[in-house]
Amino acid sequence: MIGSPIVIDARIRSAVKIKGAEAQNLAAGKSRFYVEADVLALIRGPGGMSARIGYVVDVALDSRGKPPKLKKQRVLLFARPVPARADQVQLSGVDGQRFWSPELDALVRTITRDVVAADAPPAITGVGNAFHVPGSLPGEGETQVFLRTANNAPISLQVLRRPGEQPRWAVALGDIVDESAGPPAPNTLLWYRLACGLPGSLPTGAVESDDPANAQIAAEDYAIVLKALGPCQ
């Protein structure tokens, strides 16, 4: 969704099954259609879009080997323009057509708005450096992980350990760590940037520590963050 220059709320007017040579390279368990749909709202994209658009979509077959009924369905489309054709779009991926629901609509509009905001969190490109500082009490300490971003804007992770408590983590956008900050809300743009941009483990070379025990805790704290974020969706 984030990489799609066009996001459309539409209702399908007609769907014609594509056969023969034009259905080559079709994945097993799917059927290909040429769809015409009426644009209900242009959520994201350039002006000049036609009120009715056409596109090709591959849809999954049900347990009986039949495609879903597409006509009159309300859908959200994630697409890119077709040069010199205001009435045609190309879906951005295999999930470029999604059946509409109030929950999905609200999520899409929120993230679309967040993506174009001046203070939108940037894409994560890697881990810069990380370190763990033990506290004065056994089991106490703090891990900080500084991230690399596409526009070099500072983002860092902080994991606090207190004796007898579960580790608590937060994300900071900026150079100053806000002690009251916490994890990002699920399904927000910041959550997506972290869940889908962070590497699967803390790179060994990123840890700044001569103490193997502190380096191990930093890696464990990083894993806590990944587990809390959940898989990239």
Rank of each mutant, 00 (worst) to 15 (best):
I124H: 02
R52V: 15
P102R: 00
A79D: 06
E103N: 01
T110N: 05
G126E: 09
K71N: 12
Q73L: 13
D58Y: 05
V116N: 01
E36V: 15
M49V: 15
A117W: 04
R74H: 12
Q97N: 02
S63G: 09
D119L: 08
L42Q: 07
I43R: 00
K71C: 06
S50E: 13
D58R: 00
D119G: 05
R64W: 10
D119C: 03
V75H: 01
V94L: 12
L107D: 11
V127R: 00
A120F: 10
L40S: 05
R74G: 08
K30V: 10
I124A: 05
R32F: 14
A86P: 09
I53F: 05
R113V: 13
Y55V: 09
S63Y: 03
D38N: 07
G128S: 12
D105W: 01
A120D: 05
P81A: 03
T125N: 05
G54I: 09
A120R: 00
A106H: 04
H132R: 03
S31L: 05
K69F: 13
I53G: 01
V35S: 04
A84H: 09
I124K: 00
R74S: 08
V35N: 01
R74C: 11
L77I: 08
P83S: 11
F131S: 13
V82F: 06
D87M: 06
G96N: 02
R64D: 15
K71R: 14
D38A: 14
A118H: 05
K72I: 06
P83W: 04
A79N: 05
D87Q: 03
Q97G: 02
P46A: 12
A106M: 07
G54W: 07
A123G: 10
A41M: 09
S63F: 11
K66W: 06
A118C: 01
G65A: 07
G93V: 05
G45M: 08
F99C: 02
S92R: 01
A86F: 11
F78S: 07
V127H: 00
L76H: 04
G126I: 12
L70Y: 06
Q90G: 07
P83F: 08
A37I: 11
E36N: 09
F99S: 03
V116D: 08
Q90K: 08
A51Y: 01
D38I: 09
R80Y: 13
T125Q: 03
A123I: 11
A60Q: 10
Q73E: 15
R109G: 12
K30T: 15
D38L: 11
R52A: 15
M49E: 07
V108H: 01
G65D: 11
K30S: 14
G126V: 12
K30Y: 15
G47D: 15
L70G: 03
T112N: 13
R74Q: 13
L77W: 02
S31W: 01
G128Q: 06
G54A: 04
Y34C: 04
G128N: 10
P67Y: 07
D114K: 00
L61F: 08
R85N: 11
A41E: 15
V57F: 05
W100L: 14
R85V: 13
I43P: 06
A120S: 14
G47H: 03
V57P: 04
R98E: 15
Q88E: 14
G96S: 06
R52Y: 02
V39Y: 02
E36L: 08
A51Q: 13
A120G: 05
G96T: 06
L42M: 11
R64L: 15
